[in-house]
Design a protein around this nucleic acid. Sequence first.
DNA 1: ATCATATTGATTTCGATTATCAATATCACC
DNA 2: GGTGATATTGATAATCGAAATCAATATGAT
Lengths: 149, 149
Amino acid sequence: MRKPAAQQLQDYLAGQGLKSTHQRDEILAVFVSAGRHLSVEELYELMKKEHPRIGYATVYRTMKLFAQAGLAEELRFDDGFTRYEYKASDGHHDHLICTRCGRIIEFENDRIEELQESVAKKNRFLAQSHKLEIYGLCGDCRGKRAKKE
Amino acid sequence: MRKPAAQQLQDYLAGQGLKSTHQRDEILAVFVSAGRHLSVEELYELMKKEHPRIGYATVYRTMKLFAQAGLAEELRFDDGFTRYEYKASDGHHDHLICTRCGRIIEFENDRIEELQESVAKKNRFLAQSHKLEIYGLCGDCRGKRAKKE
DNA sequence: ATCATATTGATTTCGATTATCAATATCACC
DNA sequence: GGTGATATTGATAATCGAAATCAATATGAT
Ligand SMILES: [Mn+2]
Ligand SMILES: [Mn+2]
Ligand SMILES: [Zn+2]
Ligand SMILES: [Zn+2]
């Protein structure tokens, strides 16, 4: 089980002495319901449909805020812009990224995580975060590539 | 054993119908002897000492060229700018990155590589490249952090 | 040495993100 | 419910690494 996103936001804002605004509520609702791995641009476009008055800068600022509140994970793949995904659980996962269609597949592998920790230890290194991204072709694109283009 | 960097560059240029220039030779010499993981800015500063006439854009262009020639690996860590490291061997390695002092430690772990491949296979994914970066504190900075600041 | 063409270096442009700032919304306090 | 201090918004400008532009120059095949 998990605290609802809206409640988590209110708690964070209250705890930090920040204000609850319509924009923050609306962005959160759209962000959570939209699915995963949204760029700010994509999220802004989604917002405009329901809330045309929303400002570009507000979406940027608010996503940074959500990341600090633990509501969103900030991702930087190799395509040049920042993406966010809703942190539905406390669990960690990494990503397979299709370089052809942009599809993103998530995976968890405890053994890899353990080995990373052992590598860190071996180098007297205190690991605080990590990024494992595997780039290539997803199943669909693998087939298409063989045929044409 | 390995073909000398200068020779590898000449071969690549010849093969592509490109021209051999003093700038390319000089940048390569400085780049190779400098050590690893240089940002373009850092490399440009090194170049200026021995070759003040070198242009900023030329360093950018030339590093891209070296990457295509297989002489340099292009790295994009989370600090916002591109780095290059000389590809001395054909071997692959990943990185531990100290977020306090910027130190970069290299590691190889065949077991992790295997597990990545098995994750890809399990998802019908054709892996073409990957990026594994572990961020945290190096041995030195771990001690310093405990004391002050 | 000639000449077509690749390269250089100074500079401008680009694009994602951040900073600025006047107008507005929120909320603790009355 | 009003008041007022302060946080937030939205339009816009600034930032900054990287890429594009272009006239001047270097290269190399002939
Ligand atoms: Mn994900
Ligand atoms: Mn390295
Ligand atoms: Zn795909
Ligand atoms: Zn360190």
